[in-house]
Amino acid sequence: MPPVFRFAPSPNGLLHLGHAYSALLNFDLARAAGGRLLLRIEDIDASRCRPQFETAIRDDLGWLGVRWDGEVRRQSEHFDLYQQAVARLSEIGLLYPAFESRAEIARLVAQREQAGPWPRDPDGAPLYPGDAKALAPEARAKLLASGAPYALRLDIAAALARVGELSWIEHGEGPDGETGTVQAHPQAWGDVVLARKETPTSYHLSVVLDDALQGVTEVVRGRDLFFATSVHRLLQALLDLPPPAYRHHLLVRDRAGRKLSKSTRATSLAELRGSGVTPQAIRLQLDLPPAA
């Protein structure tokens, strides 16, 4: 079977050079391998995603010369599938609702840190400090019946007890030079959120389901997601999903050494195009070979 790659941007802003690098790399690798490239729109965050940004994504990719195969998949059209996975994990006792707000979690972390540093995940966020997992069933039922907002968290200890040790095949290179067979350490993330009352999925859950349902065999993405792969491998094992191979590429950075980001208003591809920059110049700047 030919390999299947995917480019999966979120329509919450305009694409920049970092996105261009990932899209072009996926496109080049797919064509070189005689494979397929899929386009997926990751739009589960209804508060930030906009149709005009999806239109801009298509325009930017067309300008770059990136062509994808088949229909575009939008995550917002498949919430029912994600809910089924949430229900499956709940039925085997691996999810629990946590009712603390983000502000309450911050206060709990501050309290814990009075006794010393509180552990943080690979992205630098504090691990969940609450005790919702230990709530009595009556108290939990009362909170749910009240309509209180909640996050569904994965009981990481119980999940790991079901699957044992995990690893993945890395065709790129991790931040510390990891390549080949890489051991997964999902416990580093603590009890991650897999869904919320108002949003029936999370990035971690939807991405592994979509990759499996679309038959993706090669995940090529930025090195900033290297450590998140541990969570993805755990979810794949719990849900009996086939794991793809991974390639985490270097990030495109600005002159200050920061990775390009929509939040820091990195120069968009639309701005570059408007200033007369050509797709071939983009490839040259990104140290990619000229288009065939």
Rank of each mutant, 00 (worst) to 15 (best):
D123K: 06
A115N: 12
S10A: 12
P175D: 06
P242K: 07
D176W: 06
T181Y: 10
W63M: 03
D210S: 08
P186A: 08
P117E: 12
G62L: 11
T264Q: 15
L24T: 03
P244M: 05
G65F: 13
L154E: 00
L269M: 08
L95Q: 00
L269Q: 06
A87G: 09
D240T: 03
G177N: 01
P200K: 00
Q75R: 05
L64A: 08
R58W: 13
H249W: 13
V252N: 05
G174N: 04
P200Q: 02
V207C: 04
Y128R: 02
L94F: 07
W189R: 06
L235Q: 10
A237T: 05
G172Y: 03
G215R: 01
E173F: 05
D123W: 13
A134F: 07
K262L: 14
I44P: 06
G215P: 10
V277L: 13
L260A: 04
V219I: 09
Y203W: 11
A195L: 01
E138M: 01
A145L: 07
Q111C: 08
R31W: 12
L209C: 13
E54H: 14
L64M: 11
A266R: 00
L234R: 07
P242W: 14
Q183G: 15
L14R: 08
L284R: 15
L17Q: 04
V219C: 04
D211C: 15
R67E: 14
H19M: 11
L152V: 00
L135C: 04
Y128S: 01
Y82M: 09
P126M: 11
A20Y: 03
K197A: 10
E104Q: 15
F53P: 00
G257R: 02
P126T: 12
Y128P: 00
G215D: 08
R258M: 11
S47V: 09
L166P: 00
W168G: 02
E198V: 10
R223S: 10
D121C: 11
A292Y: 15
S230T: 02
K142A: 08
Q280H: 07
L286S: 06
R67M: 10
V192C: 08
R107Y: 10
Y21P: 00
W118D: 04
R140N: 06
